[in-house]
Structures are given as structure tokens and as C-alpha cells.
Amino acid sequence: MENGAANPIIVCENVKKWFGDFQALRGVTTSVEEGEVVVVIGPSGSGKSTFIRCINRLEQHQEGRIVVAGIELTSDVRNIERIRSEVGMVFQQFNLFPHLTVMQNITLAQVWVRKRSRSDAEQRAMALLERVGIPEQAAKYPGQLSGGQQQRVAIARSLAMDPKIMLFDEPTSALDPEMIKEVLEVMQELAGTGMTIVAVTHEMGFAREVANRIVLFDEGQIVEEGPPSEFFANPRHPRTKMFLSQILSH
């Protein structure tokens, strides 16, 4: 829209969301192009997670419109599961299935949701594990892996569903510094393949290098958005200036 939306894959119009009396989203309007990488930043509690969880309907918005891949998310959408399987999500806490091996974690939804044969699913899982760099961990259980490895398995698990969109909610916040890089590299490689990505992250290096657009949230609304070069070089809104000075000061 404002950037002459040629082919928006996510459209949000005036999205509002309340938790009880508390308004977490106060009217969010934006859209994401196919293949675009959007990084969402903002202070804690500003509604970033709520926003991206509305995109795959883990949370339900109460007012406004959200259209994902041509389908509007309303309470009477049938087959919400089908839409969800088009949208991959990676969580801060990985949320791997602890009772299943890495291989089973990646094949389970392929077999049950995508209805692939087991051998087909295992082949894809292996290819994805190669891609995220840990093919040798296939037979282990999540509890036996480091945090960085777990998060890469979680990414592989989402990618195995061939999603059109990938959502990341602070994927590196629970990791030790030395493991952050390995996850960011996987994300960067993914962006290079033309995947549409919406990522909440405070890794400013990643944002600067990989993002097409940065979105700043505060108090449940978008304060400012724009390409990283402009966003970092001359932020317009005073709130943006303050936030950037806080996170770039160290």
C-alpha cells in the first residue's frame, strides 16, 4: 500500500486486540510483500509477539482485518489448520517435542498434516538437517542438544511444511552468545532463498544486513517503519530515536 504493494502476502488493517481490559494492539496497519524480510523491534510488552501470533491465529484479533495468502482470518475460517501449515513459526523457547527424536520432530507434521509418506518425510527432514548444519543429530532427543542446535531443529521442523511465510519470535533471546550466530546464519540463508520472513529480534546486525524493512512497535502500535538504511540513519519519530539510542548504546 504505502510502498505501492505489488503483491502483499500479509495485509493487516487497523488490527486491535484486547486481553481482558488491557489493549495489546491499538490498531495496526501494515502489509508484507512476498519475499520481504520484516524485522519487528520495540520495547518489551509493546505487543510484538501478540502481533505476529495474530498472523497465524495463535491469538485472535477482535477488530480490524488480517489477510494471509489471500485468506481473511475470521472466527469462521474453516480449516484454520491449513492456513497455519502455510505459516511457519519459530519460538523463543524452541518448543521442540521432548518425547520425540529430532527426526520424528521434523517428520511428524509432514506425515500427519501434509500426508506425506514416511520415507518421503524422512528424506526431506534429512535434507533440511543438512541445510541447518546438524545432520548427525537426527537420532537424538531434543534434551540432548545445545540451545542453538535445538533452535535450528525448530527451524527445520517449520521449513519441512514448505511454508510460504516464516514467523520468528525472538529466536535468539534464549541462547548463549556463542550460539546466536549459528541461528542467525540459518535465518540469513533462508532470507536469501526468497522466503517471506517476519521476525521479532533485537539483533541489530541482522536487521541492518538482512531486513528489507524495520518496524518499531510501542504501546500496541507501529511508531515508525522503513528500510534499515533510513531507519537507522535518520529516524523521524522521537520515540524511535530514544529506542535506538538505548539499544545501540552498548
Binding site: L58, E81, R84, V87, F91, F97, A109, V113
Partner: peptide, 8 residues
């Protein structure tokens, strides 16, 4: 949440 996000 992870199961739902995978479309189960």
C-alpha cells in the same frame, strides 16, 4: 502452540 503452529 508448536503443534498448532504446524497445522495439527
Amino acid at each position: 502452540e508448536a503443534s498448532r503452529a504446524l497445522g495439527m
